[in-house]
Design a protein around this nucleic acid. Structure first.
Length: 306
DNA sequence: TCTGGGGTCCTAGGACCC
DNA sequence: TCTGGGGTCCTAGGACCC
């Protein structure tokens, strides 16, 4: 990402190892920049990478995927694929619908049932037809298939939710193990909230059973929080609502959403929350300096020896 | 591939209000 | 007592992405 930001500050990171760069206003062509970038990443970091160059994000992304897939046969994927302006639709036409963003296994099957296998097949359908079958997404589908995408490169994305989940090595049905897990997860979620200076307004619990059915339960808090104990309390309440004693659990998770910036609460009516907040900050400091295990709350010990 | 972890967005139904 | 329409908020689940 550092290497990318050296080319332009207009970088939109979309995952740990992918990003869009807006290079329209740079003096050099996209292709020249791509070659330089690829060489720098190879020489300085010893890493292969693939790049796609096009007039919009959709086509650039698909161009990257196509190049990456075709160069995989030669060992490491290290492709550069250019789609010249005006050739977007023609480039996409022969590709399977799966290549489009938002088309996964389910949608690809539904499209195939309508006789639509390639992006070109989709591009030939009237928008209303696609909307009739796919709702709002049909509109996107019609535009994407023609290579139309007007979304700008956005350098910052607000975080919408923070969560932490664990799949157990083997199914767990002991209440205290499950509660201990929820506790640890609530702490990690809380810590990330505080680090980002955010509060969460909704707490969500996720439970997956051995047969893979997955339940989620969420609750909106009276007041947004960044406190481990409050997140944990809400999670436990939700957990008690879905879990029956002895029931095995495969996966457990806790998350918060409806995030907003931390607002300093006036402590007039909230002295207890205020004190909890200070205690939390102290715990964070200790745990950062030493380890997560160095200090625990008395209430946590209760999980083990009720 | 008997299926990990962390996300986003959409849909649908119910509660509640005017 | 039953009726309408619209809007908002909340919850649950599912598809999809890397």
């Amino acid at each position: 990402m550092q290497r990318l930001r050296a080319v332009t500050p207009l970088v939109e990171q979309i995952s740990i190892d992918e990003a869009f760069l807006e290079v329209s206003d740079l003096p050099e062509s996209g292709e020249v920049l791509a070659r330089r970038l690829q060489a720098a990443i190879r020489d300085e970091l010893g890493l292969p990478c693939s790049l796609g160059i096009a007039t919009n994000k959709l086509v650039a992304k698909i161009a990257t995927d196509v190049g990456k897939a075709s160069s995989r046969s030669e060992g490491t994927p290290n492709a550069i694929t250019v789609v010249p302006p005006g050739e977007e639709a023609a480039f996409l036409a022969p590709l399977p619908t799966r290549a489009l963003w938002g088309v996964g296994p389910k949608t690809a099957t539904r499209l195939a049932e309508l006789g639509l296998r390639t992006i070109g097949d989709v591009a030939r359908q009237p928008e209303e037809y696609l909307v009739r079958h796919f709702g709002k997404f049909g509109r996107d589908l019609a535009r994407q298939a023609k290579g139309i995408d007007e979304r700008p490169v956005v350098t910052e994305h607000a975080v919408k939710s923070i969560s932490q989940e664990t799949t157990f090595a083997r199914d767990v049905s002991e209440r205290q193990v499950l509660l201990r897990t929820l506790r640890a997860q609530s702490e990690r979620v809380g810590r990330r909230l505080r680090r980002l200076r955010l509060h969460g307004g909704t707490v969500k619990l996720k439970v997956r059973k051995p047969d893979f059915t997955t339940l989620t339960r969420q609750a909106t808090l009276d007041q947004p929080t960044d406190q481990d104990a409050e997140i944990y309390a809400a999670a436990v309440k939700l957990f008690e609502g879905v879990w029956q004693v002895g029931q095995p659990v495969r996966l457990l998770g806790v998350g918060v959403s409806r995030l907003g910036s931390t607002v300093r609460q006036l402590s007039l009516w909230d002295t207890d929350r205020e004190r909890q907040s200070h205690l939390q900050a102290t715990l964070d400091t200790l745990r950062t300096r030493f380890s997560d295990r160095v200090i625990r709350r008395g209430s946590e010990l209760m999980d083990r020896n009720p």
